[in-house]
Design a protein around this nucleic acid. Structure first.
Length: 283
DNA sequence: GCTTGCGCCTGAATGC
DNA sequence: TGCATTCAGGCGCAAG
C-alpha cells in the first residue's frame, strides 16, 4: 500500500539505478497494467523503445521517468505495484506485468499482484504529465501552498478524513497516513471540514508532514542494492504506527484501546479518548 | 459544480 | 479438511 513516502523511496532508487540508461525493448504481459495508455500495448512499446531515462520525478503517489524526447513514462503503484531493477538472468516474478530491457542488460520490471497499479507514456509530459493536471501538489513540493489548502478544506462540505484522501485537494495521503495524522492532531475522522478552525486545519496538515517525514526517514534506509521496490512484507511500515491497524491496543498517549470503525468502505482507527467523535450539530 | 459510492483485483485470513 | 466469504486499498467515473 504505497503512499507518498514509499513512492519517494522508489523514486530515489530509480534515480540512483536507472538514470541515463536506455530502454532497448519492452514487453507488456498484462494489458490491464497499461489501461491508462489508451493507444494500447504496441504503441506503448514503440514510445519507450530507444528512449533514454533522463530524470525521476514524483507528485503525490504518481511517479514518472522523463524520456529524452520530452515524453514521460508514468507509473502508479496502486496497492501492490513494485518497480524493480534486476540483473540479467533473474527469474521472472510471479506477477511480472511489464518488462523493460535496458542497454546494459539489466531489466526494469513492473510487478503488481493486484493490478490496481498501471503505467502509461505521456507525450510531452516530462515536467508534469498532463494526466496529473487534476492531482494537487503534495506537501513536499515547491508549489504546495498550505494556507490555500486550509482555506479549500474549510470550504468543503465533507469530513476531514475524506478531505485528506482527496487527491485534488492535497496529494500523497492514503488511508494509513490519514489515520496517523488525525491521531497526532487529535481530530476525529468524521469531523466536518466546515467546522474546523484554521488552527485545527493547520494542525492536521502539519501532522501529515510530520508522519510522512518520519516514515521517509525510516523507509529510506530499507532499500538498496540492485532493486528498488516496495516490499509488501518488510521494509514497509516497520516504523511504529500509533493508530492504524492497532485495534484493541492501548493508545500511547492515554492508554485507551484503539478503536476500529468501518468508514468510507475502509477501516479507520482512532483513540476514543484523544479523538472523540464530534457532537452534532458542530459549529 | 460538488459530493458520494461503486467496481476493479488477488491472495491471505477467517467462517462454517 | 475443504470450500466459501470477507477484507485490503487508490483511483476513475457514474450517479445523486
Amino acid at each position: 500500500m504505497p503512499e507518498l513516502p514509499e513512492v519517494e523511496v522508489v523514486r530515489r532508487g530509480l534515480e540512483r539505478h536507472v538514470l541515463d540508461a536506455t530502454i532497448v525493448d519492452a514487453e507488456v504481459f498484462t494489458g490491464r497494467s497499461i489501461r491508462r495508455h489508451l493507444p494500447g500495448a504496441p504503441d506503448f512499446v514503440d514510445r519507450v523503445r530507444d528512449r533514454t531515462l533522463t530524470a525521476a520525478r514524483r507528485r503525490g503517489k504518481f511517479l514518472w521517468l522523463a524520456l529524452d524526447d520530452d515524453a514521460a513514462l508514468l507509473a502508479h503503484l496502486g496497492m501492490s505495484g513494485q518497480l524493480r531493477v534486476q540483473p540479467p538472468g533473474t527469474p521472472d516474478e510471479l506477477h511480472l506485468r511489464i518488462r523493460f530491457r535496458l542497454d546494459d542488460g539489466r531489466e526494469l520490471r513492473f510487478v503488481d499482484q493486484r493490478t490496481f497499479g498501471s503505467m502509461a507514456v505521456s507525450a510531452g509530459g516530462a515536467i508534469l504529465p498532463s494526466e496529473l493536471a487534476h492531482i494537487a501538489p503534495d506537501p513536499f513540493e515547491a508549489g504546495y501552498d498550505e494556507d490555500a489548502v486550509v482555506d479549500a478544506m474549510r470550504r468543503r462540505r465533507t469530513n476531514v478524513k475524506r478531505a485528506l484522501l482527496d487527491q485534488s485537494l492535497i496529494s500523497g495521503v492514503g488511508n494509513i497516513y490519514a489515520d496517523e495524522a488525525l491521531w497526532v492532531a487529535r481530530l476525529h475522522y468524521a469531523r466536518p471540514t466546515a467546522t474546523l478552525r484554521r488552527a485545527e486545519a493547520r494542525r492536521v496538515l502539519a501532522a501529515v508532514r510530520e508522519v510522512m517525514t518520519a516514515a521517509l526517514a525510516v523507509g529510506g534506509t530499507s532499500f538498496d542494492a540492485l532493486y528498488v521496490g516496495v516490499d509488501g512484507e518488510r521494509g514497509y511500515f516497520t516504523r511504529s504506527l500509533e493508530a492504524y491497524d492497532r485495534a484493541g491496543e492501548p493508545c500511547s498517549r492515554c492508554g485507551s484501546p484503539i478503536r476500529r470503525d468501518r468508514f468510507m468502505n475502509r477501516s479507520s482507527f482512532t483513540c476514543p479518548r484523544c479523538q472523540p467523535r464530534p457532537r452534532r450539530p458542530h459549529w
